[in-house]
């Protein structure tokens, strides 16, 4: 299965390379390094949110409130920046992480202590957080001229050929890789999704694990809120509307099992890049935004079918093995 997963990641990489090559024939310059760097930069926020979503999905949960969390936290950060221009950027980022984590903790608390199904909880908080963003702003916008230059420019600063925004994504990828493969929390996340009952018997508190996954997811949504607001230089109630579904889609395409317990950081990143390439390529080769949405949808369904088939194949292989051992025995 590990080999199969690896195969799948290589396969996904192959598909992305082929897509880029294919688009390059229709749109010269598409495969240029600068354009690829642009695509990566464009996809940075999706990569971060996909990793956050993946951590939650691994524990057999789902976080539909990430985009709403992003909108509320983004509004709060932007308004603070507008009201107190002297506040250092670090303080704002810490504040974004903190607010995001708090909103995530609310989800986690409802899932852990009140035992409400994650999809219901986050469907509810999705609306609540968006509503809170409206209440906070009174429906008004925070525009570029109200934001300080530092606030707007830091993510765009180019360092070693890539904007800081891209470097943040790279850093987050490394952190998630480390957390998921090297810490007991990461192992607990895989175990509580792979078999919740077995995890309990092994002394793992699956409720707490889910709680921390939601907190992590919320903190990442908070981080993304700053990145988003500064990138688009505007904050309003409806930013990132529906973006939670993109994060789920990236996970599904990247081979993260929606039933929990299966997935890898590379998968989530590739899934996000896949969507990023399509989003960037289709307008270039002249396909309408509506067709784009349909194409993204088709890709997601295909990815799910592919996942289901991979699982089924696994089962058949086991049986064959067992049969052979039985015959020899």
């Amino acid at each position: 299965m590990t080999r199969l997963l690896k195969n799948r990641e290589i396969l996904l990489t192959g598909i992305i390379v082929l897509m880029v090559a294919g688009f390059a024939t229709r749109a010269p310059g598409f495969a240029e390094p600068t354009n690829l760097a642009n695509i990566f930069n464009d996809t940075s926020i999706l990569i971060i949110l996909a990793l956050a979503q993946m951590t939650v999905i691994l524990t057999k949960s789902i976080d539909l409130s990430v985009a709403a969390n992003l909108a509320f936290t983004g509004m709060a950060v932007a308004m603070t920046n507008a009201a107190f221009p002297d506040l250092p950027l670090v303080a704002l980022i810490v504040m974004a992480l903190g607010i995001g984590a708090c909103l995530g903790a609310i989800n986690g608390f409802l899932v852990w202590i009140l035992q409400i199904p994650p999809i219901v909880v986050t469907l509810g908080t999705l609306t609540i957080y968006r509503g809170m963003a409206f209440v906070l702003s009174g429906g008004s916008w925070v525009n570029a001229h109200q934001m300080t230059p530092t606030f707007l420019n830091v993510p765009r600063t180019v360092l070693l050929g890539l904007p800081v925004l891209s470097w943040v994504a790279v850093l987050v990828v490394l952190v998630f890789w480390f957390v998921l493969t090297r810490t007991p929390f990461g192992r607990a996340a895989f175990a509580s999704g792979g078999n919740p009952v077995a995890a309990v018997y092994a002394g793992i508190d699956i409720g707490a694990t889910r709680f921390f996954a939601f907190v992590l997811s919320g903190a990442m949504a908070g981080l993304c809120s700053y990145l988003w607001v500064s990138r688009y230089a505007v904050a309003y109630v409806d930013i990132a509307n529906g973006f939670e579904l993109d994060s789920v889609a990236a996970c599904v395409i990247g081979g993260i099992s929606i039933a929990g317990g299966i997935g890898s950081v590379a998968g989530a990143v590739l899934g996000a890049l896949f969507l990023g390439v399509i989003k960037n390529a289709l307008p270039v080769i002249g396909i309408s935004p509506f067709a784009q949405m349909a194409i993204s949808g088709v890709v997601i369904v295909l990815a799910v079918v592919f996942n289901a088939r991979a699982e089924a194949r696994k089962g058949r292989i086991i049986l064959r093995n067992r049969n052979t051992t039985e015959v020899t025995a």
Binding site: A191, G194, N195, V197, A198, Y201, A202, I204, I262
Partner: peptide
Amino acid sequence: VPEERGRHGLALPMPIFQNMSLP
């Protein structure tokens, strides 16, 4: 050591050594 090893015992998608070391 629970009764149903599939349901209570092991996280099937996880590697053998990770299952063994989990507790």
